[in-house]
């Protein structure tokens, strides 16, 4: 067992996901099965090997800092579950 049900609950909280107790158990079993099968990676000698973050070497892509056409506030808000006065509306954040 690489990962306990407590670990899974912790990772779920980090990922902002909720699971019921039986879902947590199933997830723990599945993640353990998957991670066990990945064990063979640890047998590969990677001493001094640079990690690849991309397949093709690219450096920073710069462009001129010019104003270009962009979305109107109406278009940007059109898909919002809730909007008011040109803003995205969310539940109260600061408790009073």
């Amino acid at each position: 067992m690489k990962i306990t049900i407590k670990d899974v609950a912790h990772v779920a909280a980090l990922a902002r996901l909720q699971f019921k107790e039986d879902e947590l158990e199933a997830m723990t079993a599945q993640l353990n099965g998957i991670l066990d099968s990945f064990d063979k990676l640890q047998t590969v000698d990677t001493t001094g090997v640079e990690p690849s973050t991309h397949a093709v070497d690219v450096s920073n892509a710069f462009r001129d800092d010019r104003v270009r056409p962009s979305l109107t506030p109406e278009a940007a808000l059109a898909n919002a579950p809730e909007a008011e006065e040109g803003c995205f509306k969310v539940p109260r954040i600061i408790e009073v």
Binding site: L14, I34, F38, Q42, V44, P51, S52
Partner: peptide, 25 residues
Amino acid sequence: MLGTYALSAGYYDAYYKKASQVRTL
């Protein structure tokens, strides 16, 4: 869940970094 775990404190080197090195190979 798998990705969050692989990136989380204490497991990053064993999983994400190791995988990125083997990707180079």
